[in-house]
């Protein structure tokens, strides 16, 4: 006997506004602390505000038109590109190699993991000071070591000449940024089922083939996270440059972040400096979109 059960429709509490009500507190915080300052910045980039006076004038897109004619902007963009490529590629590759090494049968794994990750948790200003001393041309450990082993000719004023300054700042940046991809890759490697390697071994795959055809494809989600976060981190570069070289010698190690800071806070050209900030933001958004899209696709 068929029975018909009448299901009474329960009225939804709060109706279709419920999700919005729950999201409202977070949205308010987001609007107040992110959207509003961003809109303000956009506006100030269209003015000649000095960053200190009560009044300013609207100058339209003048600040943006000035950017390509500013020789320091050209230097800064070039430095940003070099910085981004090097400080993504090198720590990622070293991090992956360390993760693979630590995933094998290695004695003292927890201690090694700690050693490799420790730079990532040190305050950046401390790192900058430590490396500043290491690089000291007369008394620093690096040049002293080079002289000790008879390579006096290689001893350089590392931070004191245009040709080496940016590269010298990148070394500690690589040192401190290697621990993060190492941890992510290590976690991802531990999630790869052993059966895959066993099957590959049975099929006669060499270690090299296993790496390319089992390990690397399995690490794809980790690659996404490492690359996206490293990319954003690289674009934000400011503190290492500021603390180690102050953008010098001259302006040779200026990046967009420091040049924005110099204009807004030191040269009393807040309008122009904010235009630089807007450009940095737009570029960061543009390169971040593929990551967000990939994450959204995965989630759906």
């Amino acid at each position: 006997m068929a029975t018909t059960v009448a299901v009474a429709k329960q009225p939804k509490r709060g109706g279709r506004w419920s999700p919005w009500l729950f999201a409202l507190p977070a949205l308010l915080v987001y609007v107040a602390f992110l959207v509003y300052p961003a809109v303000s910045s956009l506006w100030f980039s269209l003015t000649n505000w000095d960053g200190l006076s009560a009044t300013y004038k609207f100058v339209g897109l003048d600040n943006y038109f000035k950017l390509p004619h500013d020789p320091v902007v050209v230097t800064a963009v070039r430095n940003n590109l070099i910085w981004t490529v090097v400080t993504i590629a090198v720590p990622t590759i070293i991090g992956l190699l360390l993760a693979i090494a630590l995933n094998g049968k290695v004695h003292g794994k927890p201690i090694l993991r700690l050693i490799f990750y420790t730079p990532a948790v040190l305050p950046l200003v401390s790192i900058a000071s430590i490396w500043g001393w290491l690089y000291n041309p007369q008394y620093g450990a690096i040049n002293s070591f080079l002289r000790l082993i008879g390579l006096d000719g290689l001893a350089q004023p590392w931070l004191g000449q245009d040709s080496t300054a940016l590269w010298a700042v990148m070394v500690p940046a690589i040192w401190l940024r290697t621990g993060f991809p190492m941890l992510l890759y290590l976690a991802a490697l531990q999630g790869i089922p052993n059966e895959l390697y066993e099957a590959a071994t049975v099929d006669g795959a060499s270690k090299w083939q296993q790496f390319w055809h089992v390990t690397m494809p399995s690490l794809r989600p980790a690659h996404y996270i490492v690359l996206a976060l490293s990319l954003i981190d690289s674009f934000k570069v400011f503190d290492m440059i500021y603390a180690m070289t102050y953008g010098g010698p001259g302006t040779s190690t200026q990046v967009m972040g420091t040049w924005m800071y110099f204009n807004v806070f030191q040269y009393y050209q807040a309008g122009y400096g904010t235009a630089i900030a807007v450009v940095i933001t737009l570029v960061a958004i543009a390169v971040g979109i593929p990551y967000v899209r990939s994450q959204t696709k995965e989630a759906s």
């Binding site: 509003y36 303000s40 009560a54 300013y56 004038k57 609207f58």
Partner: peptide, 15 residues
């Protein structure tokens, strides 16, 4: 352009 604004004025408006 010669329009003059006050920073506080703008902040108030956008707020």
């Amino acid at each position: 352009m010669s329009t003059s604004y006050t920073r506080r004025g703008f902040l108030g408006l956008t707020s």
